[in-house]
């Protein structure tokens, strides 16, 4: 469903220096698949996600979604940014309503759907607070609800739980898996945490250091629905985590050309 074909990206800096960020990335993601991207800081993970979202144009190559070439953002690809990017002048409800209003949903229906989503991310009762009055984890849940509201079939999540404490992070991971089990959206998920990637994904994509190339793709053959407690004790889970951590530590010489 998502086909990333030979995508490269080179940034031009102010002083006309050329900065290669992504190098010849090809990746196909099936409908309903949960794929995580792992890689060292600055290897271009965010950039890749922005290109799939249509926010940034690739320097070479192309992305197609359901056979259609990506030329700009569209509501079937919903982003969730690491920085939340909530609208500070809108309340929780206003933020979640925004996409529904742009989709032309009637006000009453939009309100009902927004409230339902807010309840789903466990924020019922916080509808009328402004983002600045929320904790980091609450903000991230609003951001997820805001994106889910307009029912994208693809979620593009950039380290959505990166800035959260371990406890909140675990809860949100579970919530995300619940949502995913129910709707089977296609998810492209960037993270720094190997455990998180293995726990959530069908496949884990690892990248080399900058300029980022694909290193290795690992299929995670663990039963679903997954429970964190059970997996932590599961030998196969541990093997995946240790194996991928080793792979990430190893020199980038093993990268495919």
């Amino acid at each position: 469903m998502i086909a990333i074909e030979a995508v490269s990206k080179t940034f031009e800096t102010e002083k006309r220096r050329r900065l290669p960020a992504l190098c010849d990335i090809s990746l196909a993601v099936a409908a309903g698949e949960f794929v995580s991207i792992l890689g060292p800081s600055g290897c271009g993970k965010s950039t890749l996600l922005y290109i799939v979202g249509g926010f940034v144009a690739p320097s070479a190559g192309a992305v197609t979604v359901n056979g259609q070439r990506v030329t700009g953002p569209s509501p079937d690809r919903g982003p969730v940014f690491q920085e939340f990017a909530l609208f500070p002048w809108k309340t929780v409800l206003g933020n979640v309503m925004y996409g529904l209003q742009r989709q032309g949903v009637a006000r009453q229906q939009a309100l009902a759907r927004a409230r339902e989503l807010i309840a789903m991310v466990h924020l019922a009762g916080y509808e009328n607070l402004y983002p600045k009055e929320l904790s980091g984890g609450m903000k991230q849940r609003v951001a997820i609800a805001r994106t889910l509201a307009y029912r994208p079939s693809i979620l593009l999540m950039d380290e959505p739980f990166g800035a959260l404490d371990a406890h909140t992070r675990t809860r949100l991971q579970n919530d995300l898996l619940d949502i995913w089990e129910r709707d089977r959206k296609t998810v492209l998920f960037v993270t720094h945490s190997v455990e998180e990637a293995v726990f959530l994904s069908d496949r884990v994509v690892t990248m080399t250091r900058a300029p980022g190339r694909l290193k290795q793709i690992i299929a995670i053959d663990l039963p679903r629905p997954r429970s964190r407690a059970a997996l932590l004790l599961d030998r196969r889970f541990q093997d995946y985590v240790v194996g991928i951590e080793r792979l990430m530590d190893s020199a980038d010489s093993g990268a495919p050309a």
Binding site: G53, A85, Y98, T147, Y150
Partner: peptide, 13 residues
Amino acid sequence: EPKLAWSAQAAGA
């Protein structure tokens, strides 16, 4: 912040 605008465009604005 460009991500604010991106969030809106992704929502169909």
